[in-house]
Design a protein around this nucleic acid. Structure first.
Lengths: 212, 212
DNA sequence: CGAGGAGTTAACCATACGGTTAAAATTTTT
DNA sequence: AAAAATTTTAACCGTATGGTTAACTCCTCG
C-alpha cells in the first residue's frame, strides 16, 4: 500500500546543479549544517568549490534548499492523511501506514528534522517550514466524536496524536541504540522494521478498545 | 514519585574546572560537537581559552567527558528499572514514571543523544557509551510469561519495549514541532507534559488488556 | 623570605573555512 | 565563425578555529 514511484536516482546525465544538490543533501543529512563542510560537498559532487557558490550563493542558502526539499517531501503526505474525510479507524491505519512508508524511504529524515529543529528552532520555523503546516484539528475532532459515541476508550486527543507519531517515528531516530540494546544484527533489524507497521497499528487499536 | 535530590547547582565556590565543564555541557548539548566552539565555551565560563586546554586537553576529550556525564546520568536509572524483580505491570508503571522524570529534569538529553549517536555512531558506542549498557532481557522474559499466562494481549516483546520508550521520549525530542502543530503556548505545553505520565501509562495498559 | 608549582593570561601559530575574483573553457546564439 | 552568454577552474582573501607557547600571578611550604 502507498508504494510511491519515486524515480530512484537515474544518474543518466545529472546536471552539475543536481550533483551539488545531491552531495549537499547527503552530507547535510548525515552531519548537519555545522558538521558538513563546503569543500567536502564539492569533493563529493566532484567539482570545484567555487561552483557551489555559483549555483547556490551561500552555505545557508544551499542548506535551506536541501532542508526545504526534505520537509516538502513529507508535508503533503501528512496533510492528505490528516485532512481526509475517512472515518477515524481507517484514518489512523492509513496514517501509520504512509508515515512509516515515508520514513522507510528516507530513514534519515526524522533525525535530520529533530536535530536541526532543536538546534536552530527560529531559522527552522521561519525559513524552512512552510507557513501553512498541516494541522490535525479535523483529526482531533474525529477523536472527540468517537470518544463521545463510546466507539473508543476516552483519551486525550492531543496525546493520542502524539502517541501515534511517537510510535511511528521514534524507532528510526533511536535505531542505533535499539540495535545495541536489543542486540540485533542487520538482518534482524530489517525484519523488525518490516513488522513494525502491523505491530504499531494493532497496538494503537488495542489501546483504543472501549473499556469493559 | 522518584523525585531525586540532585544538588541543583550550588554556585557557592565553583572551581574553574567545573565552570568550564558546565559551560561546555550547556553548549555541547545545545549546539552539538561541531556547533559548539571552544572560544564560546571559554567566554561562557568566563576564562581564557588556553585554560580549556589546560584542564581538558582537546575539544574531543572535553566533549567525551560531557557526553559520558550525560549518559551516565541515565544509564543507572534504566538498569535499575529493567533488572528489578517487580512484577511486569508494576515494572512498566515505574519505568514510565522514572524515565519521564529523568527526561523532565534534562529535557535536552534525548535530542543530544539522538543527534550525536546518529552523527558519529562509532565514536559514540566506542568511547562514550559504557560497555555494559542495560539490557532488557529480563523485562522481555517477563513479557513473554505474561503473554503465555494470558495476563496481557499477545505482543512482540521487543516491539513493546520500543513502544514504551517511544511514548516516553518522543514528545521531548519533537517538542518544537508539537508545539507548532498542536498550537500550544508555553503554559499549555507545560500542562501537556504534566499529564503525559498518566496518559502514557494508561495508554500502554489499555493496549495490553487481553482481548475479548 | 624565596623557591617551586599550580593557575591564568596574552600573544601567537597553522590550518580550515566560507566566500571571491578573474580568467579560461565551453556552450549558445547570431 | 564571431560574439555573447554560461559554466568551470585555480588562485586567492579574510577570518574563525583548535591548539600552543612563554611569561606572569599567586599560593604554599620549607
Amino acid at each position: 500500500m502507498a508504494e510511491q514511484e519515486i524515480s530512484q536516482q537515474a544518474p543518466v546525465q545529472e546536471t552539475t546543479e543536481q550533483k551539488i544538490f545531491d552531495a549537499a543533501h547527503e552530507l547535510f543529512v548525515q552531519k548537519g549544517l555545522d558538521g558538513a563542510k563546503m569543500q567536502e560537498i564539492a569533493d563529493k559532487a566532484g567539482i570545484n568549490k567555487a561552483l557551489l557558490h555559483y549555483y547556490y550563493r551561500t552555505k545557508e542558502k544551499l542548506f535551506e534548499m536541501v532542508a526545504k526539499a526534505i520537509i516538502h517531501q513529507g508535508v503533503p503526505v501528512f496533510r492528505k492523511k490528516l485532512e481526509s474525510d475517512k472515518p477515524l479507524e481507517e484514518k489512523i491505519a492509513e496514517f501509520v501506514d504512509s508515515y512509516i512508508d515515508l520514513i522507510r524511504l528516507n530513514p534519515f529524515m526524522p533525525v535530520f528534522i529533530i536535530s536541526e529543529m532543536n538546534k536552530h528552532p527560529q531559522h527552522f520555523f521561519e525559513k524552512i517550514m512552510p507557513a501553512e503546516l498541516p494541522k490535525p484539528q479535523k483529526f482531533i475532532r474525529q477523536i472527540e466524536e468517537a470518544v463521545a459515541e463510546g466507539r473508543i476508550r476516552p483519551v486525550n486527543p492531543q496525546h493520542l496524536v502524539v502517541n501515534i507519531m511517537a510510535l511511528c517515528a521514534f524507532p528510526f531516530v533511536a535505531r542505533p541504540m535499539m540495535q545495541m540494546v536489543l542486540g540485533l544484527n542487520a538482518h534482524e533489524i530489517e525484519a523488525f522494521f518490516k513488522q513494525r507497521k502491523t505491530e504499531v497499528t494493532e497496538f494503537i487499536f488495542a489501546a483504543l478498545r472501549p473499556e469493559s
